[in-house]
Computed example of a mutant assay.
Amino acid sequence: MSTSDASVDPPARVEHVCALPHIPEAVCAVRRRARTVLVQWRVPSLTVDHALLVISELTTNAIVHALPPAVLRLSLPETCDGRALLIEVADAGPGPRRRPPRDRPHPAEHEENGRGTDIVAALSARHGVSRHPERATRWAVLHMGA
């Protein structure tokens, strides 16, 4: 059979799925695993660096603010303007809310927490949240430059 034959199946979607243990130490291990996968996929190094920051923010959010189980999914969907990296972190929805002190509704300039969404927005072409009755998926798309 010729490779130009229209009946040939398209290539399988490139995808990696990783369960997220519900402990803070998991973020570092997941980041290392993701780096290995992205390098194997020959993702450009700048995109890898940006992806690891986004993965850190999304996985930390799932571990700290959501209920388990959580899972990280990386994929390389074809887009109309070239390849992109899709990062998704699904969890079982929000955990019990922790209220900030009434006199400080936003993080102070010197605080390390509270800026994850800004980081994801700055590094991704698009990002968002898909909510379903018993789960939420936070996602980000990064374009893969040379």
Rank of each mutant, 00 (worst) to 15 (best):
D5I: 13
H65T: 01
A34I: 01
S7E: 15
R97F: 07
D49Y: 11
T117P: 00
R33H: 14
L76E: 08
T47E: 04
A12K: 11
A90G: 03
W139V: 04
S56Q: 15
V27G: 05
R98T: 02
N113K: 10
A26I: 04
R32W: 08
L58F: 05
A70K: 03
L142D: 05
T79C: 09
P24Y: 00
A12D: 14
L38M: 07
T36C: 06
S75P: 04
R31W: 09
T36F: 07
C18S: 14
P100S: 10
A121Y: 02
V54A: 06
A140S: 04
D81A: 15
R73P: 00
P68I: 00
V27K: 09
P77N: 07
C80K: 15
L52T: 08
I55P: 01
H50I: 00
P11D: 10
H22W: 03
V129W: 05
A108Q: 13
A62L: 01
A146E: 14
L53R: 12
G116N: 06
S124L: 06
Q40A: 13
R98N: 01
N113A: 11
P69T: 04
G116W: 02
T59E: 05
V120Q: 04
R31P: 00
D81S: 15
L86F: 05
V17K: 10
V30G: 03
C28N: 10
V71K: 13
V64I: 08
A146S: 13
L67T: 03
S56K: 11
C28Q: 14
R126H: 11
N113M: 12
I55K: 04
V17F: 04
R104Y: 00
I119Y: 02
S4F: 13
E134F: 08
V120P: 05
A125Q: 15
G82I: 11
A19N: 10
G128N: 10
R42N: 11
S45F: 05
Q40E: 13
A84M: 11
I63T: 06
V39L: 11
R42Y: 02
